[in-house]
Amino acid sequence: MNRLTFLVSCFFVVLGVSACKTTTGANNQKETTLRVMSYNIRHGNPPSKPKFIDLDATIAVIRQQNPDLVALQEVDVHTKRSGGVDQAKIIAEKLGMYYFFGKALDYDGGDYGVAILSKFPLLDAQVVALPILEGTNAELRALALAAVQLPNGQKIWIGSTHLDEKGNPANRLAQLDAIAKVQATLKEPFLIAGDFNATPGSESIQRLDALFTRTCQDCAPTFPVINSTKAIDFIAYTPAARFTVKSHLVIQETYASDHLPIVAELGLK
C-alpha cells in the first residue's frame, strides 16, 4: 500500500524574544545566524525509567541549547501512556515558542508524530504523510512542514521527519522520494531535520545527500544514547549556496531520551 496524502494540522503558541542575529560578512553580504536543533525525545520517557514521563527533562535539554528552530520526533499528543497531555503544546509553551505538531498515526488513544518549534512565526504549516510499501508492516511516518517568517522578513521552510525503522531501506527511499517532491515545490531555502534511521554511506543517506547538504559529513554517533555507535539523526539544507555551517554538535545528554540531540549553527545568506 503506497500512501502519499497531504493533511493540515496547525497549532501555535505565543512567541518569546528572538535570538536570531543578522551580520554583514565578506562582500557586504548580509547573513542571518540560525541555531537549529533536532531531537528524538522518545515521548519524554527516559530509558532508565520505564513508563515514567519526564517532559521537564526534555524541555531542560532544549532550553539549555537556546535554539531558534527545533525538529522533534516521537512526540505524543493525548496518548494514555503519556498521561493524556499534548506534549508538543506543553514543550512549546514552557519554552515560549511557536509550534506545529504533525500527526503520523493514531496511538494509545491519541496521536503520535513529529513537531516543529520556532522562535519565529510559522506559516503555511502542513503534514505530509510519507509512503510505506505494501507488505512491509511498517509504522506510518510523516513530514511536518512549515514556513518560518524571520525577523528580517525572509521566509524559509523547515521540516521535521522520522523515517522508517523496520530495516527496510525501500521504505526510507520511498519516503525520501516523497520529500523530494515536496522540495521541488518550494522556492525558498529549506531545512530538514530528524531521525532518518540510516547511517552515512547507506543508500538512504546517499539519497538524502543528493537532495540536501548535511551539516556534518564525518558525523558523530547519536544512537544509542549510551556508548553511541550510529549517526542516524541529521540536519540538512538546500540550496547549498544559501547556507554556511558555523558549527555542528552532538549534545552528550544521556538521561532524557534514547537519542542524543544535535545542534547546528547555520549562516543564512
Rank of each mutant, 00 (worst) to 15 (best):
P46K: 03
D56P: 03
D86V: 06
R81V: 08
V75F: 01
L72F: 08
T22L: 05
L34N: 11
A57R: 12
G44E: 05
V36H: 00
G84H: 05
K49C: 14
E74C: 07
D56K: 12
I41H: 04
G84S: 10
Q64P: 00
T22N: 08
D68T: 01
K51L: 08
P46T: 06
T22F: 02
A60T: 11
V77H: 13
P50F: 01
P50V: 05
E31M: 13
T33A: 14
I41E: 04
T58I: 08
I91E: 00
Y39M: 04
D86I: 05
E74W: 04
K49H: 15
K80R: 15
K80A: 15
K49Y: 12
N40R: 00
I91C: 01
N28A: 15
G84T: 08
A60R: 14
V77S: 13
Q87G: 11
V75C: 07
K89A: 15
N40P: 02
R63W: 02
R35G: 05
Q64Y: 04
A26H: 10
D76L: 11
G25T: 00
R35N: 11
P47D: 00
Y39R: 08
V75I: 09
L72Y: 08
D86N: 15
V70I: 01
K30F: 05
L34R: 11
H78N: 15
T23Y: 04
Q29V: 14
A88D: 06
K89T: 14
I41T: 04
K51C: 09
K89L: 15
A92T: 00
T58N: 07
S48F: 09
P46A: 06
Q29I: 11
K80P: 05
I91G: 03
D68Y: 00
I41F: 01
P50R: 07
I41L: 09
T79R: 11
H78G: 13
K30P: 03
I41W: 02
N40L: 01
P67M: 01
P46V: 06
D54P: 06
